[in-house]
Design a protein around this nucleic acid. Structure first.
Lengths: 358, 358
DNA sequence: CATATTCATGACAACGTTGTCGTCAGCGAT
DNA sequence: ATCGCTGACGACAACGTTGTCATGAATATG
């Protein structure tokens, strides 16, 4: 039916990706744009004949709807954003995978925004960009370090889209999903106590990190409960790295030569600690037990295989998106979500050779 | 001056994130929307008085422009997408970081799309979603495995946005950025030869992977050139994992007891190989040299520290985005980009103890 | 003083969709 | 034949911007 429109707009660029519109399809099929829209969205009843004609036109032109236009009308972009730091490390990357999967399953597309530093300096700019893109919600996957949440005070929350925070101290009014680091560390330490260890050191992560502090607290709690010492000569504040584990182990062994176990706050730290132990001639686990944290895939093949704490980080990501989704839906219906918006996930101890008194 | 519009639209939801529009700002400032638009975009000359009035209104309402509307007009979303697999592994996650940084610096926002499996099954659906979002370009960061590029044949490239592929065999007409895996493996193997090793085995990655095959080829090339054997009893096809490295090492030592070096195609594999070597009483590096590939942060603290091949993966990501950006710009000006669209990045050998005949 | 020129601003259409409402054909009931 | 009803579809406005062009005031020019 198309009224010979072939030459009306002569140049549709060959190479560049040209996009057919509803109008193009409508003209080709000899119907109105609204009808094409109906076909595309499977709305209403359409006569079989016209539907087929429209579908043929869609096919022929390679038509794909433009969600930007759609979002404009619906005031909803079907888009979420992750703001993250450190996705080149094990934990954050796992979390992001969980976020992406769950977002995908719920029909959202996902923006990825990385911070340069965990100090939170870029926060406002990043938020601005995301708001500008009209994301329906945000997952704040930057670990809490120092006061890198200070932007929260200066930004009126009601001008921001719903946000779910990961790995941070629970705060009233904020939705948080986190692993119970304290519990994980307590489990690890308790396990060492159960194995008969009595002088148990710790190499912490940087204590500006909330997670590092929580793990430190868990270690303390377990020892207190067992009436064992937690003196400062048993504590070394490190980075998360293996190098720092090497150094920490050296210092601890120097300060407390008869230490018989060490809780390393990350598997990398544990790896470094293992190295120093070997070099200094301490047998692991006979003389010295070592437990790590994270369960990175390599830890099963350390020498000896490492006992460690496994956090279901993919689940953290998934739960975060589920929570966010609920918040978005509630918001849309002008309800305030009144359920608990703080979810704590309990980690699990993986026992391997490095801590066993065989 | 706003004609007492205070009660016109009475309910602007308290909790939900309401967005002021140009119209709102215009009304409040007593100007036209176009003028506000000009202020926002720093276009034209605006009288200082009006500019300040507009800016005050913007401030007061917390106005943020809506890029969706903007994109609709400009036919350009300022948005890129990464399609990736395995970002919970070291290599891909580093690459994604590079991509995000460069995209950010060039003013793009970034969609993240993950495949479930590297087999390429979801490719078409993912592409559909991205086209629907009118991304300006795509980075295909899924490693080439088997024929997971087959969707390329059935999809007319001129209906897709510009795409840059990572880690794949160069193909005419496609933009590719990759690390020269063959060269890296050759360097590693040559280094072993230079150290006086004569019977050099290899544990490969899964040979369905292009990268694994390239590394295998590099190992072969170096040995051929030196007139050393590459018999199949020196080859074990593994996975990328440490477990597979353990197994591979056991089998190689069984098949060729006097093997004096092994090139492991990933640091994880190397870690496993080290473990087996220790368990079987081979001293590394005295009896057996081991070289890895990837330079994961932990490898410096393996026991002994691992010689390995360092790929600047962040650069791969950055270069990919730069290339993509050029393609997009060229496309926009209807030029065909005629420069080389294949970039090979040469990796670098990091020598540590595990390969040194001390 | 009249006219030309610049400057600051506004009216309106357009981007590609979808929601609302209207239209018109066909059909059964009266 | 008239009426009402339903089913299939179209016209038009709207979403929030920006580009084009027009407008009118202020300034410069003769």
């Amino acid at each position: 039916m198309g009224t010979i429109p072939t030459q009306e707009k002569p140049l549709r660029r060959a190479n560049s990706s040209f996009h057919a519109t509803l109008k193009d399809v409508a003209k080709l099929a000899g119907v109105s744009t609204k009808t094409v829209s109906r076909v595309v969205n499977h709305q209403d009843e359409i006569r079989k004949a016209t539907r087929e004609r429209v579908q043929a036109a869609i096919e022929q032109l390679g038509y794909r709807p433009n969600v930007l236009a759609r979002s404009l009308i619906h005031q909803r972009s079907n888009t979420l954003a992750v703001v993250a730091w450190g996705i080149d490390y094990f934990g954050p990357s796992r979390t992001v995978v969980g976020i992406e999967q769950q977002a995908h399953e719920l029909g959202y597309s996902l923006f990825l925004s990385l911070m340069d530093q965990p100090d939170g300096g870029d926060s406002e700019k990043i938020l601005d960009t995301l708001i500008t893109h009209r994301v329906d919600g945000i997952i704040w996957a930057v670990p809490e370090v120092g006061d890198n949440r200070s932007w929260l005070k200066s930004n009126p929350l009601d001008r921001l889209p719903p946000i779910v925070f990961l790995s941070m101290e629970a705060r009233p009014g904020l939705a948080v999903v986190a692993v119970d680091n304290c519990c994980g560390a307590k489990q690890a330490t308790q396990h060492l106590i159960d194995q008969g260890r009595r002088k148990i050191g710790i190499i912490t992560g940087p204590l500006t990190w909330w997670e590092a502090r929580e793990r430190y607290t868990g270690w303390q709690a377990a020892l207190h409960q067992a009436g064992l010492p937690t003196s400062s000569s048993l504590v070394f504040e490190g980075e998360w790295t293996a190098a720092s584990g090497e150094q920490g182990m050296r210092i601890l062994l120097n300060q407390e030569p008869d230490i018989d176990a060490v809780f390393a706050s990350s598997d990398q730290i544990a790896l470094g600690a293992l190295g120093t132990a070997h070099r200094l001639g301490r047998r692991v686990p006979q003389d010295l037990a070592i437990v790590g944290y994270d369960n990175i895939p390599e830890s099963a093949c350390f020498w000896p295989p490492l006992t460690t704490v496994y956090q279901q980080l993919t689940d953290v990501g998934r739960v975060a998106v589920q929570t966010l989704h609920k918040m978005i839906e509630a918001n849309r219906q002008l309800k305030t979500l009144e359920e608990a918006t703080v979810t704590m996930i309990t980690p699990e101890l993986i026992v391997r050779e490095s801590s066993l008194r065989s």
